[in-house]
């Protein structure tokens, strides 16, 4: 099989101009390398990076505007003040090649499956107002109109609620009881927003002074799905860390500036998954890298923390 695929791939003819095109790319880069770019526009790259790092999640982006031009609104933009604009997810006209997972349209915004989990029993206690019922109207063959509808979704029919203690512009919840079993899931709107600091994301998670326990695991356990968690013993260090999270600086993820994508960071020394249980039963999962970087969910940005505070936290994870 291996040889067969290689043989077949090698049958793809190499055009004469191949080397010429490589050179053109390099010389174009060389010309630009001396220029100072005040505004970094990483058109599409963050999106591609998001694809590559999707872990059981997905990206749903469309790089083209209806008139076929590419505008800055689709791009991840770093402003001069350091804030990062994450473009609104644009729904596709043609999804024929797509496989799809959880998203809900609510208030004209796209909420996607969250990286924070909730136990269905605990979910019952924080159910807010019923917002509506999803329609399972989006599938691979949907037309654009399907996405304009409120509560259009890829998750079939289920009831959607606000969540007590959380802003519904940020988080909503599906909840269902079926055959005696309960199902609950958070959905979060992490696109079409500008992130100035960690507060825009971590502040929404209500973690400060709200932690019941926390644990961590190393890279290989995470990678292999092994539930080998160690407890975080110093709540003080954790609380200081969580407060500092509101001040961290956002950085756009692109394939060359995305430390989690660097193989050297994907090892037991440099990588920790930190799971934080909150008093309301929700479980926030963060990824920390030794160099001071923090990731939440499947966002197109990651965060960098002040070294002193970070290292105190990191020492708790070793």
């Amino acid at each position: 099989m291996s040889n067969k695929i290689k043989q077949e791939m090698n049958k793809i003819e190499i055009p004469k101009e191949l080397s010429e095109r490589s050179k053109m790319g390099v010389s174009q880069a060389k010309k630009e390398m001396n220029k100072d770019r005040k505004r970094i526009n990483v058109k599409g790259i963050g999106i591609a990076a998001a694809l590559l790092v999707s872990v059981g999640a997905f990206t749903l982006f469309n790089n083209d505007t209806p008139d076929g031009t590419t505008e800055s609104q689709e791009a991840l933009v770093v402003n001069e003040d350091g804030s990062v604009e994450i473009p609104a997810i644009q729904l596709p006209e043609d999804t024929s090649s797509a496989s799809m997972i959880g998203l809900i349209i609510y208030n004209g915004k796209v909420y996607t499956q969250a990286a924070t989990e909730i136990d269905p029993e605990d979910a019952k206690a924080i159910i807010g107002d019923k917002l509506g019922t999803t329609k399972g109207t989006i599938d691979e063959w949907s037309k654009q109109e399907a996405y304009d509808e409120e509560f259009a979704s890829t998750i079939g029919e289920t009831d959607v609620y606000s969540v007590k203690g959380y802003d519904k512009d940020f988080r909503i919840m599906t909840y269902q009881e079926q055959d005696g079993k309960k199902y609950a899931e958070f959905y979060e709107n992490l696109n079409g927003i500008t992130i100035n600091s960690g507060e825009g994301v971590f502040g929404q998670l209500n973690m400060v002074s709200n932690v019941s326990s926390a644990q961590y695991r190393n890279f290989s356990d995470w990678d292999n799905g092994i539930k080998n968690y160690q407890s975080v013993t110093s709540m003080q260090a954790l609380n200081i860390f969580l407060e500092e999270l509101n001040k961290v600086k956002p950085l756009p993820r692109e394939e060359n500036s995305d430390p989690i994508g660097n193989s050297p960071n994907r090892n037991n020394e440099d990588f920790r998954e930190l799971s934080i249980n909150l008093n309301d039963g929700s479980l926030v999962r963060l990824t920390l890298l030794r160099d001071g970087y923090i990731y939440y969910g499947f966002m197109d940005v990651y965060f960098e923390m002040n070294e002193d505070v970070f290292l105190k936290m990191w020492s708790q994870l070793e």
Binding site: I47, D94, T95
Partner: peptide, 11 residues
């Protein structure tokens, strides 16, 4: 993506 508006969703 630019040419075809393909989306990539991973279950």
């Amino acid at each position: 993506r630019k040419k075809k508006k393909v989306v990539y969703l991973k279950p």
